[in-house]
Amino acid sequence: MKKNDRDIRWLPGLSWLTALFFLFLYTPLLVLVVFSFNASRSTTVWSGFSLEWYHKAFTNDAIRVATQNSVIIATLAAILATTIATSAALALARNKRMKGKQAFHGAMLLPLMIPEIVTAVATLIFFSTIGLGLGLGNIILAHTVFCIPFAYLPIKARLESMDENLEMAARDLYADKWATLRFVTLPLVMPGIISGAMLAFIISLDDFIITLMLAQAGSTTLPIYIYSFVRVGITPEINAVSTILIGFSVIVVSVSAFLGRKTAS
């Protein structure tokens, strides 16, 4: 960059600092990924390329079951959370007569305001008190609640950036409320709904503490499995599983960001 091109906000050292920051952000992940291809058992000394650990990970039954559980939980929790968050976001954005919108909006963000460990123990006590023992179902319910704000925020943002006149135009052109919702509002909010669902999915997939408290035998999820492993001893098998998870997250987040950006303009 030429000196006279510089933004008036430019400060010396800022770009270096940012570069260092990204180094800090990505080195750990990079190390993890690199050593997942290590030929030896070591997670610090490189001794050649191998896919052995991936093979081990894929043939490990415990990992398979844990993955299955994680995906089932995340899928259902994301669908549930996104559905009810969509309905709330639509009501809050478009219902003129509703009173106390600000309070409802605040309530939607409640799970973010409570440390997860508190949510976790409260849910555990609640389920055991009312005697609810649905196995995975318990975890799904808890995850749904926890994912609500993550599904809600992108949908709300999308609705807010959407021109309300479009819905007026639909009403003006003989579409009643439901037709307007179906043919105009929902198609236009869809990118927000998809990113909301993806975020909810990732959050659920990633969740550890709530699951740790609620999980019973047989409902082990991937994070729980990784945790038990990390505590007894580290093997590159975890690196392999982690790398797969990282890759998956990168794809999901990128797609969701791409969708959001494409339609925002």
């Binding site: 992940l29 190390v31 993890l32 050593f35 997939l205 990633d206 990282i246 990168v250 987040v253």
Partner: peptide
Amino acid sequence: IPFWTNLLIRTYSWII
């Protein structure tokens, strides 16, 4: 992106 990768994995990588 790193934020959406698993919390345990992120923390575990610092052990390494």
